[in-house]
Design a protein around this nucleic acid. Structure first.
Lengths: 199, 199, 199, 199
DNA sequence: CATGAATGAGACTTCATTCAT
DNA sequence: GATGAATGAAGTCTCATTCAT
């Protein structure tokens, strides 16, 4: 089972393209192989089976996604800034790859329990990133210290994810990145907003 | 195509039970028929096809869900109170029917694009409910009036939905309803919270 | 899983015909279904899977094979007569169904270990039949009483089976049944033969 | 197509080992190549294709098998003695190589018609050996001269083969060679046995 | 109204063989 | 001579839907 090489990447990218174009349930291995310019059997030199390919797609793409976000976060000082960076990176990266956004927001969710569990494990790394920002902000006194950080994480992720999904379902008709500011402001100030912290 | 009668209800309930127990992809028409105590063919006297049955499940259950929420909202005055009621009703109703919560939060999401669009249409009624609360609060000055109400709605729904999904994925191990208060507070005040509006 | 009905028999017989005609490895389910005049899926209403079908073929055919032999043996007194009847019934029944003889002597042997084990279990009933004849003959003093009955059984079955296989591999070119007499004589008297017992 | 050289032998032996260990249907060319310590493609420098390799395995092993038997037979005078030697050599050689016994008695039989025909051709040399012993014995008057030598050969080979197969299927749990005597006696004297010829 | 036996399209995966290096 | 990455054909089984009873 080779896990590197130019064909490995080609197949991963072909999977994203095919899933985005035809939908999860219409993404046969043969279609992906054709798109990648390899024979059907070649897929199985690089991946154990179809599920392994799909998990790898999520792993590779989400891995780089998280890494870039982590790097960008290093340059930020305050928790408020960090949260802003996280949201902006999230939206920016999705906006930079429409195909990928369709795959992660819509198509890869229609999978069976097993696959979703494996995807969930990859996601944990991202949620931990959010947790760190939250604990940081709560310890420094910027964020309300009597919050349950898990609920706060669910609010942040739920909001970002729902916003991204809506954007994809509206066929990317508007800019996603420019929603980072207002979303950030709402998360910080809440619905009743308008107080000095971020203005 | 009969849309009423005791068997209609039996089939809808059987579908919820089977999907909750075996998962979406293991919920064959024949299994649902068996659970409902009818013949396979009988399903097709009440539903056009399997997709129609699944949409109907969501319709019937979500319809009652929304209705009860609407009724409860009538008794509330302020937007802040209304939001609290909405969250509480949401959590309370999910908590009252674990099977249904599995179906709506996990299983019914693994569907193809078409079905999800139809489910989305049913959901619109619920989202409109949120929109009304928001516009209400923004007009009365309680909520920040320069928010984009659509983003606010995405924050509210995204947060509630993510919280509910986490609760289901953690096997209903803790109380969901008691999260209504802290969630409500966070949505109102944001992460930096702690200011006079709701205390 | 229905195990009776006219289609059940049709499928079993179609399997014999197809395997005899095209060989074990060229006997696809679709080919058998076509020969039986049913849809591919119908096979799976009557059999768990392809292996189950093949085992059932052997079971059904061998079951009737053994039963007929058992019935015929009842009318015989001496062990020598019984052995003659067993051989004659064996050859007679194979000769009566050339297709079946190809299937049991040649094609059904090219199966994997699992299937062969299951076939072996069915065969045991037949081998037990031989054992009874042997013990009978040994107790009555007709057969050499210091033989190992298991070796004797292997000689009898090995000889009959090898003779039948040769006959099939020679395209049924000669009569099989008329070999029962000389085979019987050889088994009784051995190669050095020519002594009073059976003449 | 090289048919000699150290790799040729290595591949033959690797095939025996792999087939004995994993079974015929799990003996892929790549597995045999790995066991032999050569590349997949190298197999095709020494053998035309997989079938050719399998036939060669049988050829090489059976060739030496027959040769040794022939040599041993030279020292025997009477047909009775010769038959005893043949049986003893057969059992002795199988007992000396358990792997080979699994391959020839069980695994190599699960092959398609074509391959079995080719294996049959190799076997003919062995069957001819038996025929010679039989004709010898019949001409000299030791064996019953009105037997059909072909049937006698089928009895001898069928008995030996069935005995060997049973021994392998019972996981070589008992000694095979020590069955040569009783088997020989039974073949000579038959089931009714006990007369002066071999005692 | 209700039944349930029958249909048949469609896809993942394996593995013998090749050929550029 | 030797390698091993790449090829691509081919078959079992599931399950939504129908329709004769």
């Amino acid at each position: 089972m080779k896990r590197k090489g130019p064909k490995y990447e080609k197949i991963i990218d072909a999977a994203v393209t095919v899933i985005a174009m035809h939908g999860y349930h219409q993404s046969q291995v043969s279609k992906i192989a054709k798109e990648a310019g390899v024979a059907d059997g070649t897929i199985y030199l690089y991946f154990k089976n179809k599920e392994d390919l799909l998990v790898s797609v999520f792993n590779e793409k989400m891995g780089s996604f998280i890494e870039k976000t982590e790097n960008e976060l290093k340059g930020r000082q305050s928790a408020v800034e960090k949260l802003h960076t996280l949201i902006e990176m999230h939206f920016k990266q999705l906006e930079a790859d429409h195909e990928l956004s369709i795959v992660t927001q819509l198509e890869l969710r229609q999978t069976n329990r097993d696959l979703r569990v494996k995807i969930g494990e990859v996601l944990k790394r991202y949620l931990t990133l959010i947790d760190h920002i939250l604990k940081d902000g709560m310890e420094s006194g910027t964020f309300n210290s009597d919050m349950d950080y898990r609920l706060a994480r669910q609010m942040i992720f739920g909001t970002i994810d729902e916003t991204a999904t809506n954007w994809v379902m509206n066929d990317h008709r508007y800019g996603l990145r420019r929603l980072a500011d207002p979303i950030h402001k709402m998360l910080i100030n809440g619905l009743c907003g308008h107080h000095p912290h971020v203005e």
